[in-house]
């Protein structure tokens, strides 16, 4: 049995006080201005969507055909109204809640499932690896949007259903990534040592493989969330989203397109810009996290 080696990464310079892993990562993250902008954007959008309705209260359940297509600012509607009289700013907040909740939940679900399966496949190898990876290959060979559309057409879309549908197919990417990490981690000496001392495979996956791949997982999770938000938008744009009076930004964008030529710009730009901003925010955050978890970049 080999002896335990020293720390795998480069040793800290002796004149630098030791920093905690998370603290070190936070410092690197904060040095990335775009990441901070992304984080700020996300916090701002989330605050507008979830806290905004407490301040700016509108009726997003009942239509009002006497107040359709009001221009921004008209009769107290800051962003105007849509074709059935819903206040557009209130609808943007409501739609944002759905987009963020579904995006986050689907992204997290995909990350959890993908991480677990990827770690198990990579660590155990053999037929387990072959089975999981062939499943991944098979599912990846089918365009995901097609699968989403098929499922969304079969079942009546709702927020939990969208989370399940998107999560059910979005785990493939994380699974591949984590499996790659697991393949390298399983031959590390500390894992070998733990197995030599009688540790089970499950413990190895739980205590060593996943924790040591956590950087990759977290960075990928941010992109998963961004992707999930876009997929909610895609499905809604194609008419397969959650039916009214529920709203989401993709559906609002789709509805707004019907009014493109009528000059009702406030129905088109706000949801479109909101989608861009939140997706960019998660991408910036992901880039920042990648820097923070990347060992070479962490050492400044």
């Amino acid at each position: 049995m080999s002896t335990l080696s020293e720390a795998v990464g480069p040793a800290e310079p002796n004149d630098t006080p030791p920093r905690g892993l998370w603290r070190q990562g936070l410092i690197v993250f904060c040095e990335n201005r775009l990441a901070l902008v992304g984080l700020g954007l996300f916090v701002l959008l989330a605050a507008v969507c979830f806290l905004g309705p407490l301040v700016y209260q509108t009726d997003q359940v009942h239509t009002d055909l006497t107040a359709v297509y009001r221009a921004p600012g008209e009769q107290g509607h800051l962003l105007g109204t849509d074709g059935v009289g819903y206040d557009q700013l209130g609808r943007l907040m409501l739609g944002g809640q759905t987009s963020i909740i579904v995006g986050l939940a689907a992204g997290v679900l995909a990350t959890i499932v993908g991480t677990l399966l990827g770690a198990i496949a990579g660590f155990f190898g053999g037929w387990v690896d072959a089975a999981v990876m062939r499943l991944v290959d098979a599912m990846m060979s089918i365009p995901s949007l097609f699968l989403f559309m098929l499922l969304a057409a079969i079942v009546t879309p709702s927020a939990p259903m969208l989370i399940l549908i998107i999560g059910a197919f979005a785990w493939l990417g994380p699974a591949r990534l984590v499996r790659g990490e697991a393949l390298t981690l399983r031959s590390r000496e500390y894992v070998q040592a733990m197995r030599g001392m009688g540790g089970t495979g499950g413990r190895a996956v739980r205590r060593h493989i996943i924790p040591n791949a956590i950087g990759t997982v977290i960075v990928n999770a941010t992109f998963q969330v961004a992707d999930a938000i876009l997929y909610v938008a895609y499905l809604s744009f194609l008419g397969l989203g959650i039916p009214p009076p529920a709203a989401n930004w993709g559906g609002m964008l789709s509805d707004g397109l019907a009014d493109t030529y009528s000059g009702h710009w406030w129905l088109l730009y706000p949801p479109g810009i909101a989608i861009i901003l939140i997706v960019l925010a998660f991408n910036f955050i992901g880039d920042g996290l990648r820097d923070a978890f990347e060992v070479r970049l962490r050492r400044r």
């Binding site: 990846m140 995901s144 197919f169 979005a170 785990w171 493939l172 990417g173 994380p174 591949r176 990534l177 990759t216 960075v219 990928n220 992109f223 998963q224 961004a226 992707d227 876009l230 997929y231 938008a233 964008l253 088109l268 730009y269 479109g272 810009i273 989608i275 861009i276 997706v279 960019l280 998660f282 991408n283 992901g286 990648r290």
Partner: peptide, 20 residues
């Protein structure tokens, strides 16, 4: 880093931007 989704989210954002 790779992603299951087409061309990663940034490309999706670009697509959305193109829509707008």
């Amino acid at each position: 880093m790779t992603s299951r989704f087409p061309g990663r989210a940034l490309r999706g954002a670009v697509a959305a931007a193109a829509t707008i």
